[in-house]
């Protein structure tokens, strides 16, 4: 979630696609620490098929440079590949928030992000890239600098 917010902060304009029945909702007041919620649009869909269709449409169009979609069942290869091609055509970034173990093989990268307890600070996170089509895997400890609105990389050895 924080990963999505921080990545979106760089993009400028964001479309968040979610299924309308889900009770969990992103809180724009909390999001304001990362970027301006006025730049965000939310598309409420009826089911995952619609979510994917809307995401593909938006990715291909390119008017919104960053599309976040929440999915509830795993993407199959065809769906993942379509999204991948759409993103390539529109020169946009798509980010899929997946429940544990539902990654698609078509994804360019996959990240695992978890907050880490730190006695001195309450923004420490561990970001690990667990799939990378064009590079190596690595993990970072990062913290969010709210005043400067940027990400600080922390050396894990320094803990």
């Amino acid at each position: 979630m924080v990963f999505a917010a921080i990545s979106a902060a760089r993009a400028g304009r964001v479309l968040w696609v979610r299924e309308a029945w889900q009770e969990e909702l992103v809180n724009p007041v909390g999001l304001a620490d990362f970027f301006d919620p006025a730049c965000m649009l939310v598309a409420q869909t009826r089911n995952q098929t619609e979510t994917l269709a809307v995401a593909e449409e938006a990715l291909k169009d390119g008017a919104v440079p960053f599309v976040i979609l929440e999915i509830t069942r795993p993407l199959d290869l065809r769906e993942g590949r379509r999204l991948q091609l759409a993103a390539k055509a529109g020169n946009t970034t798509g980010l899929c928030l997946i429940p544990e173990g539902m990654g698609s093989n078509a994804a360019e990268t996959r990240w695992h992000c978890a907050p880490v307890f730190d006695p001195d600070d309450s923004t420490l996170m561990r970001w690990e890239i667990i799939k990378n089509k064009s590079g190596t895997l690595k993990a970072w400890h990062v913290r969010w600098n709210a005043a400067a609105r940027r990400l600080d990389v922390v050396s894990p050895a320094g803990e």
Partner: peptide, 15 residues
């Protein structure tokens, strides 16, 4: 619309 401001930290996700 805007501005968005909160005096205290608010969670990113509400349920």
């Amino acid at each position: 619309g805007g501005p968005w401001a909160s005096a205290r930290p608010r969670p990113l996700r509400l349920f």
